[in-house]
């Protein structure tokens, strides 16, 4: 079923919408959650929460891009669960790439009046200026939290090339954000 059809099912409050979403994007959701949580049980719960989130969001929302919408919900819910787990000092299987990102923009230097959405917009603008390969590798690493190895397999690069691309993209992004006045 195409995405439009699935959205129509949500609007019709037809529970088939969830089954169709699961069939089409369940594995994608699970991979996003698993990359963040590294725990099968937590990931499955996050995926289920994603479906509930979609059910509650559509309607009134009518996402122009359903796949990206699903990804965003799965990512946000997984990060929330991760944060809750971190507060409870739960240990997680594999550390995420947070340190690499914090190098770009440490929390303490971001002005309070700049919202996350504003920063996201600037990152989008920056990524559009990047070469397609660099852009996609960056998004895979820091949006989907793929391992360097998985990115290398996906794009058929060596791992060292992926690391090198990420290093230079991070450096350029940092420079760009400073230029755009995102820090104090």
């Amino acid at each position: 079923m195409n995405d439009q059809g699935i959205i129509e099912l949500y609007f019709a409050r037809d529970e088939l919408a969830i089954r169709e979403t699961e069939a089409k994007y369940g594995r994608l959701c699970h991979s996003i959650a698993y990359n963040i949580l590294h725990n099968s049980e937590d990931s499955s719960e996050c995926v289920n929460d994603t479906y509930i989130g979609l059910w509650n969001a559509i309607p009134p929302a009518r996402p122009s891009n359903f796949k990206a919408f699903v990804c965003k919900i799965a990512r946000n819910l997984s990060l929330k669960r991760l944060e809750a787990g971190m507060r409870q000092k739960r240990s997680w299987g594999t550390p995420l790439s947070f340190d690499e990102l914090e190098e770009i923009l440490p929390d303490e230097i971001v002005t309070d009046h700049v919202g996350d959405e504003d920063i996201g917009k600037l990152i989008s603008d920056f990524l559009r200026r990047e070469k397609e390969d660099s852009r996609n590798v960056f998004v895979r690493r820091y949006y989907f939290f793929d391992s360097v190895r998985d990115i290398a397999l996906r794009y058929l690069f060596t791992e060292s090339k992926v690391k090198n691309m990420l290093y230079h993209t991070r450096a350029r992004l940092k420079k760009y954000l400073i230029k755009e006045g995102i820090e104090l």
């Binding site: 944060e83 947070f98 996201g120």
Partner: peptide, 14 residues
């Protein structure tokens, strides 16, 4: 906490 830039990345364009 989750660094702000991680949350901000959640807002990149579709």
């Amino acid at each position: 906490k989750i660094p702000r830039i991680v949350n901000a990345l959640g807002y990149i364009d579709d």
